[in-house]
Design a binder for these strands. Structure first.
Lengths: 336, 336
DNA sequence: CTGAAAGCGCTTACAG
DNA sequence: CTGAAAGCGCTTACAG
């Protein structure tokens, strides 16, 4: 618990001035190779560790990125946050992360705390509600911030938005279900009125409209529990439904369990397609067809985009849509 | 993008000295109520935000906690990390979090980065291997650190350890399976030789020894994929097995899928008990019996323990075991 | 109860 | 290529 060594200690042991040590720390090319080696040796010798907070007081970039997520326990968001964090880490940044549990007040609070901690930029998958309380302080502090996965601020000039192309995904999935011979396709799950729900539903509505088929929407929470319950309700109230496009994989996995429970065979008589392609999809029985958003790749690309903004001033496009891909598995196999 | 206001600006607008502003910031009781109000008003007026890095340079506590997790995509660890982070946040701390993907080298790297960032304490669910590279620098920096969920450093005086009481959990679960009439119980999943595996297996071995029954161990990765495959292998190679205690819920859920795939009914002819009680257990069909570790509560209690150490110097016990509870569901119902 | 001064560990011009 | 000085925004004794 000694006082930690500083650049002054390093300078003394290496026999140079502290400015020189600072230059070595920042890999300046203007230090002689020999001197550089001596300094590094001194650092190792006395166990010097760089103090970023101190450095941050003079220059700007603290190397801290704030990662604020509406529902971190949901595997979809976990995957996103984890790949983003790892990509940042590989680039020398650390991530301060917070789960907001869909609570706008909590979100505003953690964002303020992160501003105090001096984060250099934000990636926010926002909760719905009271957007000003969160984005106001960020704007005032002049900190770059991207909204991802959900757009809550229309001002995408200040807060660029990026998300997978949900609309196309749901259209392609619906067309696929029609191709397999499904006559009555339900859209199951997703809280009514939310932007994400609307988007993931709109491709479905488009595809059905083109085919001249009536939609059948069963809104609800994006959870396994809802999916499970929905399987029963759908069978009871809309017996004619022979397929379901689910808001996300959790709902779809829940429906799979629900169908098992009521003895409904999935794949032949009843087809299910999920959304996101979380890991479980390939592991359940029957395996689950889904729309892959490559959320890990999305997280990595967000890290790139943000750092390009931060380091090189390359402003992200106002609205980015990343491609998605339909993955056909046993839950909606054409022949079966 | 203006220069952000400092306490000097606040002092000027409030007509006091900057020391007074500092006292107000730290809620010192020695400032007159009137002055305090004036200062707060000035802060709000000019949009002052506290700069913790600067504060940290003089005093100690940065209010940053490092949270280092071996497998953040695993729902068990996600739940732990999320509840811990939220508890810290509620107490005014921010969490810098990193996933190490079971890579000791990556772990050493992120830990060093966090030390540079000045984290005040660590909670580490460590990867196996090269422990010195991670814990050496922490010890040298004199930063409080707890190892949780897995013990990799025997020196628990320096690095206190805490985890749920796995041994009791697996013993109780095994006794339960014996009670339901199971004659041949397999232990499925868990990488051979690891401390966690040994612990989760030891209660099983104890219970079987007491009952005079032979163990049947099928080691492997702690994943759904392994569980699914194991279901088939178990049926093929050890047809007499009529129950399985799984290393964790992922393996158990995988076995559930695997049993569905090979047409083996779970609950009656074949019983399954998982470990951890992740959310899915209550949602799948049949619902999964499991050993609940209350990992959310565990996360919260770790936050308390760590902050008590940090703020009040209360050293955690060297080794803590938190209670677990058997949750019986349909996958191992006695009567069925 | 409030003010003036020093210092935390760095970086940044500016000299040499 | 290297050194001496000032300053980042706070807190901490120390006076008053």
């Amino acid at each position: 618990m000694e006082r930690r060594p500083t650049i002054i200690d390093v300078a003394r042991t290496a026999g140079v001035s502290k400015s020189t040590v600072s230059l070595v720390l920042r890999n300046s090319p203007q230090v002689k190779e020999e001197t550089r080696a001596a300094v590094r040796e001194a650092m190792a010798g006395i166990g010097y560790v760089y103090n970023r907070s101190a450095a941050n007081m003079r220059s700007a970039n603290a190397g801290l990125i704030g990662l604020v997520i509406n529902d971190l326990r949901n595997p979809f968001f976990t995957e996103f946050a984890t790949s983003l964090q790892m990509a940042l880490s590989a680039r020398g940044y650390a991530a301060v992360v917070a789960n907001t549990d869909e609570d706008p007040a909590l979100q505003a609070q953690v964002v303020s705390a992160m501003i105090e901690h001096g984060v250099s930029a934000f990636i926010i998958s926002p909760a719905y509600g009271d957007e000003q309380a969160t984005f106001g302080p960020i704007a005032r502090a002049g900190i770059p911030a991207m909204q991802v996965l959900r757009m809550v601020m229309p001002d995408t000039e200040s807060f660029p938005f990026a998300a997978p192309d949900y609309l196309t995904g749901s259209r392609v999935a619906t067309e696929h279900l029609l191709t397999t011979g499904a006559k009555r396709i339900a859209f199951v799950g997703g809280v009514e009125g939310r932007a994400v729900t609307n988007e993931r539903m709109s491709g479905y509505l488009e595809a059905l409209a083109s085919a001249g088929v009536e939609p059948l929407v069963m809104s609800g929470r994006a959870s396994r529990a809802f999916g499970r319950e929905a399987a029963g309700r759908l069978a009871a109230e809309f017996a004619e439904a022979d397929a379901a496009l689910c808001f996300n994989d959790l709902v779809a996995l829940g429906m799979l369990s629900g169908c098992a429970e009521i003895g409904r065979a999935v794949g032949s008589a009843f087809k299910i397609v999920g959304f996101d392609d979380i890991e479980d999809c390939a592991q359940v029985y029957p395996t689950l067809s889904t729309v892959r958003c490559d959320i890990a790749g999305f997280g990595e690309s967000m890290a790139e985009t943000l750092l390009a903004w931060l380091e090189e001033g390359i402003l992200p496009p106002e609205r980015t849509r990343t491609p998605v891909e339909l993955i056909v598995r046993d839950s909606s196999r054409a022949g079966s």
